[in-house]
């Protein structure tokens, strides 16, 4: 029963990422190391799968002919990206330049351009790239237990006061 239940609940999640793409980028730009969260460069939240290439640079590459399982299409799309001087995060540094510098082309540096809040990049001074600093999201209240605890704690006085009343 237990095993059957888990089998029903858990749907296998095969990967749909093209395994050769990271190596293609590394080779093309002569990168010494691959960024630790390279999947998140193109796949939203780093979750690979059909329909998940939705980050700004991912969309820009798709618009320039990127298709799955086709390293040649990635090469061509990157060339087109460079020719168009695409700057997906509008931080003044092109996507290709950010790739070569090891910074994120998806997230603008909060220090550049005087942008209003919400930036998460590091670095100082104008024109710099942005460092990949946004950790991927986690699901589950390990992120924050406080509101849940406050809620359930808040119910206790209600129940206690109810008990005191005569029926």
């Amino acid at each position: 029963m237990y095993r059957v239940s888990l089998l029903l609940l858990v749907v296998a999640a095969p990967a749909f990422a093209t395994d050769t793409f990271p190596a293609t980028i590394q080779t093309k730009y002569g990168l010494a190391d691959l960024p630790p969260e390279l999947c998140a460069l193109c796949h939203t939240n780093g979750i690979t799968g059909s329909g998940t290439v939705n980050t700004p640079i991912g969309r820009a590459l798709r618009m320039r002919g990127l298709t799955a399982n086709n390293a040649a299409s990635l090469n061509a799309a990157l060339d087109a990206l460079a020719a168009d001087a695409v700057d997906s995060d509008n931080d003044g540094v092109t996507d290709v330049a950010e790739l070569m510098a090891g910074t994120s082309p998806n997230v603008a540096n909060a220090m550049t351009g005087g942008g209003a809040g919400g930036g998460t990049g590091g670095g100082e001074g104008g024109g710099g790239g942005s460092v990949i600093v946004i950790p991927p999201p986690k699901f589950g209240c390990g992120a924050a237990v406080v509101p849940e605890l406050l809620f359930f704690a808040g119910l206790l006085p209600l129940l206690r006061s109810r008990r005191r009343k005569p029926c």
Partner: peptide, 28 residues
């Protein structure tokens, strides 16, 4: 699930699921 079929993650309390580590979570 990373395949977006059973996306209960945004309503989950425990255990914490980190999809970036690959695959989907088990029961939450």
């Amino acid at each position: 699930s990373t395949r977006a079929i059973l996306q209960s993650g945004p309503a989950a309390i425990a255990p914490v699921c980190d999809p970036s580590q690959g695959g989907g979570c088990s029961v939450q």
